[in-house]
Design a protein around this nucleic acid. Structure first.
Lengths: 178, 178, 178, 178
DNA sequence: AATGAATGAGCGTTCATTCAT
DNA sequence: AATGAATGAACGCTCATTCAT
């Protein structure tokens, strides 16, 4: 069965997140996965394929679910934060951010994610704050700010040990727009 | 004179920014700097010393200058954004962000920058919005958000081509707190 | 049936001829033959067995046929050239020549071919030039030369695009001996 | 000094001749040369460069020396055989022949050599056998035959253990043309 | 007979680092 | 201070071969 393949991906995910793609050798991956070195290349002909497969199989941007929004804007934004449309472990997020700088596939995925996040935040605000629709520019800034903070949460936490509470940020931005 | 040393650092800065620290060999640095391979190790006994030296000599977090603040909060925040207290070339910024994830020195420098940014934003808001001092938590969120956006702006631009206008964000956050 | 076995040998023959035995992997053979990798080793327990089998089954040195010789020596030599007693495809000939340098089996086969060629040329000359039998040494040189040219013709053509016309060579050597 | 480089080339020459280029690992070369593995790549960035360098530096087609020819054609051909215009050890000749089949550089060198040999043999015969100049075709065959035998001497010897005496061949061909 | 996952030795190559000069 | 040959560990990857099914 695909036990070995999964173990290789698990090990790679952990090691890439911890030390980065370049600094992680295929031998270390095999060791951590407890498989022989050659097997890594049986499943992933090139080392890069391990990274691409991780991004492909372990980050997914969810379809927007169109269930009714909470009527209040802060509540709606809070729900967006809670259901960040990126199904990916913290490890995968770090990998995505780190490798986006040098690997197109990671960059493309991250770009798409950012775009989607902004789009949803904007839409949420438009629907729940009909009065603010007049000031499109302000609304856009708020959406982009919200997306940025959500996106870089993981990185920031790694830097400072602190997180910005998305709920509090949602409240703050809502207040700014009303 | 120290022409060679400077050329080595210049070359390393460009290469680290472009391909990352791990993927840049000392031989390539020497080649790009047009110095013999051995000379790199004359000035920097370990490859890591090149990175440390770059961070040490080419990124600097400015001392808080205590010149009088503009009286209005939005104006004061705007000035903070315009004078991001990080003296570093675009290349050095990319290096700092990229390597912060895996190299302590870069992380420490970036952590310090973030901390300083938050501190200044908080201080600015406290001084210009005396009425808001009562709600320390909200003020903190606003400061942290402002710092985060400033910090990751460069990254985001590299990803998406869009920037969040810091002035507009300053306005938005000010409004939220009043 | 033995469809797979034949396809493996066909693929190996083409690949060995094109890239050489050493530079052809069993995996490539399996791929070209459109059979699973494991099957190659089912039929040929070692990679070398593929080469040995090819030489064994696809090169054959013909038995000397003792049909009456043309009476004139040049005509007789010409017929020998026209019926080079090696039944083998162009691919197999290239394999034989190339691998003879390093693999005993190929060398043995090629040695046998050369010996047979010399033997026939000598015999032809002896029978058709009874007067020349006195000078065995010259006759031997002529026979060996004829054999060499026939043997390396293919190689030379591959190199230079030129062929030595065996008929003309037969004429020339005959004249030298009369 | 270049002691190591020479030892690497010496070792490679012997091993390539014995086992062929593909079947000779760089590790074996280093071992035989008694240098560390890494040094091979210091001098020859790619394994192929070892072969190319050998061909470049250790096979040389000499300029035709225009000293007066012996007046008799057989003597002149004999001298050509004795001074085969290829300065190359027996090892290098085997390498040249073997790798010519798959490596363009070796093929080009061998082609040039063959062409030059034929040219000289033709010229020698033309000068010493003015009467034969009328029959250019026969003269060409004789020259090509002589060149072929000289070229493949080494290979033939490896196959059969026998050599064709070039002097005797020179005599034979001369006789054929007179 | 047929399959493809598994194995580990070995390959060509890279590389940070050392060191004699 | 400056140089480039030397070094050997480690890298990504290939490969013939095995084996359970």
């Amino acid at each position: 069965m695909n036990d070995s393949r999964t173990r290789i991906l698990d090990a790679a995910e952990a090691l890439f997140a911890e030390t980065g793609y370049e600094a992680t050798s295929t031998a270390r991956i095999a060791l951590a996965a407890d498989v022989p070195k050659g097997l890594v290349f049986h499943y992933f002909p090139q080392k890069m394929d391990v990274l691409l497969t991780l991004i492909d199989e372990r980050t997914e941007i969810e379809e927007p679910c169109e269930e009714p929004l909470p009527p209040d804007p802060a509540g709606a934004l809070r729900r967006l934060a809670a259901r960040l449309p990126l199904r990916a472990s913290p490890s995968m997020r770090r990998i995505l951010f780190r490798e986006a700088d040098t690997h197109r596939t990671a960059r493309d995925r991250l770009t798409a994610l950012n775009r989607e996040l902004v789009r949803r935040a904007r839409r949420t605000l438009e629907l729940t704050l009909p009065g603010a629709r007049g000031d499109a520019a302000r609304l856009e800034i708020a959406a982009a700010t919200f997306a940025t903070v959500l996106l870089y949460q993981e990185n920031l936490f790694h830097l400072t040990g602190d997180r910005i509470d998305p709920d509090a940020l949602a409240d703050l931005l809502t207040q700014a727009l009303t």
